[in-house]
Nucleic acid binder design. Structure first.
Lengths: 327, 327
DNA sequence: CGGCAGCCACAACCAGACGTTGTGTGGGTA
DNA sequence: TACCCACACAACGTCTGGTTGTGGCTGCCG
């Protein structure tokens, strides 16, 4: 199936005759005739009833028409996703299941007209910053444990999401029915977070959290996927894991897992939006305004939150977006 | 953009190198190289980083990949929609807003794996039967005011949907807060159904209904679309219209329209499924079973319903599906 | 350190696809 | 009956897109 033939088919269906479709496509009537004949031969079906007064769609043609339109629509989107200069807003998230992805989904619902491409570079902060600087992505959500003066000049970094944590436990766990839990309380329990590779930002964060409150965070064990992890936790009276408040999982209700907020202090994983100051993409402005208008920053007073050491050094808390917030 | 090039791109992305992709596509490595080079030139973007050990996707390539997959998926669906022998189940409905379309939507949700094409032939019963007989569509929903013995031999007709009626009124209408309304009560009110062209099955039905209960059904007036009709009714203290119970409209909540069931007797618009007995399409069986399992037939006792004259002559009520129901 | 293996790009060549011009056919119309 | 209109068929030239053959680059290993 040839996309040009499909486009020609749509043009002919809209025009009601090959002649006009040919004019619209700036080709000859004979070329239209051949293209559609080729498409019909390819699909092994007749799409038009030719008459001396034009061409009417057959029933098969009527059926094919919406699919054909969809096809060229998708092709246009695919094209727009990468073509330089007019491509969709491309935002890098560290994982498709964590808060930035959820926030972007929210953004997409709020602005369905804006073409958005969410990519996962699988890169650390520095590589992400380099990608933004190179223009490969328009923006990236990341924890940025780097002082602003060490960043490239064109790069802007603003803390936009404060992710709280919930304890995820099964119904038999002693904390299953707690309204909230303090980090100090967690010291008595084993927390299991398999697949937290050492050296990553996440591992650093949980190492620091564990050290600060004397927690036992277990990162060993093979990774069988979230499904297996959740099933295991649901069954266990001892195992628990930490999850970002906005984290989405494949979450079969049958597991009956409980989310218990961690508070007093509330450990926060602060994430920033990274972008180039001179990126002219109009949707980038919309995204920043959206982040500003949603309450993605914590409402808990500073005295009642816990941040990693770098959490306070990156950018000033709640910076005015206009000034870019690079301190 | 060439679909073959897109397919090649996906194959190369999956394989991680052009060589293997070429083998998978039964072409030479050079052809793969050329196709992807052509695609890159077309999109004006580099999709792969070529290395002596293979080819890795660039960020643009990563972004393009899901769009590419979607594109070939849509192309496959478009192909499957018409290709003889393996095409999607094609069902004709008289209108996309009436009960059969709603029921089909329900069917699609119940069996998302089944490819379904809903078409609107804009044909009367006889043309629809001819289309089914010719195999142009697999099935058609229609009111069938024809005795079965006058139908072609291969055609099966089973009454599957009994559509009740609601009165649609604005908040100022005297019947706005009624729990139900009888046809006799409606005689005192003006009912407006613009766009009911004379000679159609619907017009015949409402003519007969009007005659049976002495109603005033007004079919004159220009048709400005449902939107305008609903707005007009919402504003009026006198106007009302009849709508099938399962009818969907563009229905802005702000209109505050009320649906009042018509009962005692309940006028029913009976619709049948028409199909060819020898149609081997497996999804057709699923559709018939689905219709059988849902309560699309009325639960109101026969004594409390009103049917048009032809309503009882078409097929026996609640025929066992196994025997086809052509009486 | 040099040869080798693996992978991709470039060049030359050829077949076939595709568009053009020119012409034929059929049905409705003046 | 002659004409008009719309599409199909035929012939021809161009150019796309495939193949084979070859070269360059890089990493590995003897």
């Amino acid at each position: 199936m040839d996309l040009d033939a499909v486009r020609t088919f749509v043009a002919a269906a809209d025009a009601g005759q090959f002649q006009d479709a040919a004019a619209a496509l700036s080709i000859t009537q004979q070329a239209v005739s051949k293209r559609i004949a080729a498409l019909e031969k390819d699909l092994e079906v007749r799409l038009f009833n030719r008459t001396p007064r034009g061409a009417q769609l057959t029933i098969d043609g009527q059926t094919f028409l919406p699919h054909a339109r969809e096809l060229i629509r998708v092709a246009a989107r695919a094209d727009a996703s990468v073509r330089p200069g007019r491509r969709a807003l491309r935002v890098d998230v560290h994982s498709r299941r964590t808060a930035p992805a959820v926030v972007l989904h929210d953004f997409h619902r709020a602005y369905p007209r804006i073409d958005l491409d969410v990519v996962t570079l699988d890169a650390d902060v520095h590589a992400a910053i380099a990608a933004v600087e190179a223009g490969a992505v328009d923006a990236s959500f990341h924890a940025v444990p780097v002082r602003a003066r060490h960043l490239p000049a064109a790069i802007r970094v603003v803390r936009v999401i404060d992710e709280h944590h919930d304890l995820l436990v099964g119904p038999r766990h002693p904390l299953a029915n707690a309204r909230a839990v303090t980090p100090a309380q967690l010291a008595a329990h084993r927390i299991w977070m398999p697949g937290m590779a050492p050296g990553t930002e996440w591992a650093d964060y949980y190492d620091e959290l564990a050290a600060a409150f004397g927690l036992t965070i277990d990162v060993v064990g093979p990774v069988f996927g979230n499904e297996a992890l959740l099933a295991e936790i649901a069954d266990s009276a001892h195992l628990a894991t930490l999850a970002g408040e906005r984290t989405r999982y494949l979450w079969p209700d049958s597991y009956d897992l409980r989310r218990v907020p961690v508070r007093d202090p509330a450990p926060i994983y602060p994430m920033s939006l990274i972008w180039r100051d001179d990126n002219p993409h109009p949707a980038l402005v919309a995204l920043r305004e959206h982040l500003d208008s949603r309450h993605t920053r914590t409402r808990i007073p500073d005295a009642e939150v816990w941040l990693p050491r770098w959490g306070n050094t990156t950018v000033p808390p709640r910076p005015p977006m206009e000034r870019g917030g690079t301190t």
